[in-house]
Write a protein that binds this DNA or RNA. Structure first.
Lengths: 251, 251
DNA sequence: GACTGATACTATACGGCGTATAGAGATGGT
DNA sequence: ACCATCTCTATACGCCGTATAGTATCAGTC
């Protein structure tokens, strides 16, 4: 906690005997982010971070109690990349969706951060600011705060789910050496071969897939899953926010 | 794929020379589930599964190409625990929420399954049936299939997010040896000590938290986070389904 | 200016992981 | 009886987080 907030309340008050520390915590965190980004699916390793800053793995334990703490520091640090949406333009719906899209982009850039636990939040300053700005936007709707908290929960779930899907799609392409298209071709060929009665057993699924209106292609090199996920997020949140806005007749 | 569907299309057609296999794939999958359940945050290890069935780790590679495939088999197998909600009673809203709650319970029982990738789905028969039954319910609304697909996406995100939160809360309690209450006390004490101006910097967050209407206690030993998560899921999905049901005036 | 004690860092080691590789043992067709 | 073929075992490699012990470097004291 003291590290997260760079608090000087509980500074070492050291007798200043012995050698001075050679590193700074910010440099370690920056190295940690760089290392984790370079292998998003695995995340950081103490050895790799140490090498990045030019010490042995064990030297890091003088600055940080364990790996989890370092990950928490890195997790909070990347949230500084999110710009404050509170002072943005537009109505609350559009600003909420923009908030979600910014956060998805953040998690796609730093996919390792998706494995940081929800159950016992980090409570760092930057992460806190991201939540604060969302609540600021939602408060303008003057809705019931209980409803608001539920909405916030679903928003985070949707954001992390979307980012995870995109990150996993990218990772799968690298790990398997197989294009999304190739994989799909292989998989559907395997399905055809091994289960001939798919259509009979799962008529609803087939129907839903067949009703798919095609996405326009894209020239930015993003994959199909990626574009599909982002479109679904935007429209899906549209549905959710419709429900949030409406006076609720049910329950 | 052939393994998932227990297809006999591509059976070995072996010359039947050499010793007979000592194991059956179903026994291995059952052992895999047992092992993974016994340590949900780590999931299965080849060595542990092998020990469970009484062979060495490498022997498993005669039945399964690699660990990922075994996880995929286990992942599909647990979906057989979900009862078909299509023939259930009640209106589509309640049946959809029941579907989500069943799936959350499944993922809480088998938290390791939450780490199975979304990007390149498993496409096993049991998992497929779970999706099929949801689509069957949603089709009774005669809504636009594009909207429906977006709803399905959000539903899965909400389910996995909720289950993940609960599973992580349980895991954290075991791993840290710290009750949720203890942790909260420690954390908020740390916050108070290290950042005195929290209220000034994050007024909206403070407001949202202070508006919390207390949950009734529970006597089933479930934690606060757990009950809160389930309540939020039910009400949050209520909001979402309101939005789905409504003719959409926006965009 | 030598000595002392605290401190920052290094070296090594442990038990875990997935799985490549090589070899042993059993089996059934010839 | 032989041996090709198949199942399973044994061993090893390079990773991981981090406990433990040892070494180098400094500030203060005499």
């Amino acid at each position: 906690m003291a590290l997260l907030w760079r608090s000087e309340v509980a500074e070492p008050v050291s007798s200043s005997r012995g050698p001075k520390p050679r590193l700074e915590i910010d440099a370690i965190v920056a190295a940690a982010i760089a290392v984790a980004d370079s292998n998003p699916s695995v995340g950081l390793t103490m050895r790799a971070v140490a090498e990045q800053v030019g010490v042995t793995a064990m030297a890091l334990y003088g600055y940080v109690p364990d790996k989890n703490s370092l990950v928490a520091l890195a997790y909070d640090a990347i949230h500084a990349e999110i710009s404050d949406c509170e002072r943005g333009e537009g109505e609350w719906r559009e600003r909420t969706i923009a908030w979600a899209e910014d956060l998805v982009a953040l998690f796609v850039r730093h996919a390792w951060a998706l494995r940081v636990s929800y159950a016992r939040p980090v409570f760092g300053p930057n992460e806190q600011r991201v939540l604060e700005s969302l609540v600021g936007v939602l408060r303008t709707t003057h809705q019931n705060p209980d409803r608001m908290r539920r909405l916030v929960g679903l928003l985070f779930y949707a954001v992390r789910g979307t980012a995870l899907t995109i990150a996993e799609a990218r990772e799968a392409e690298v790990a398997s050496g197989m294009t999304e298209e190739d994989w799909w071709r292989t998989t559907s060929a395997g399905l055809d071969e091994n289960v001939q009665d798919f259509g009979d057993r799962f008529p609803n699924t087939i129907w839903l897939l067949s009703q798919q209106s095609d996405l326009p292609g894209s020239d930015d090199g993003s994959s199909y899953v990626e574009r599909q996920s982002l479109v679904n997020l935007r429209s899906g949140l549209g549905i959710l926010l419709d429900g949030f806005e409406a006076a609720t007749p049910h329950r």
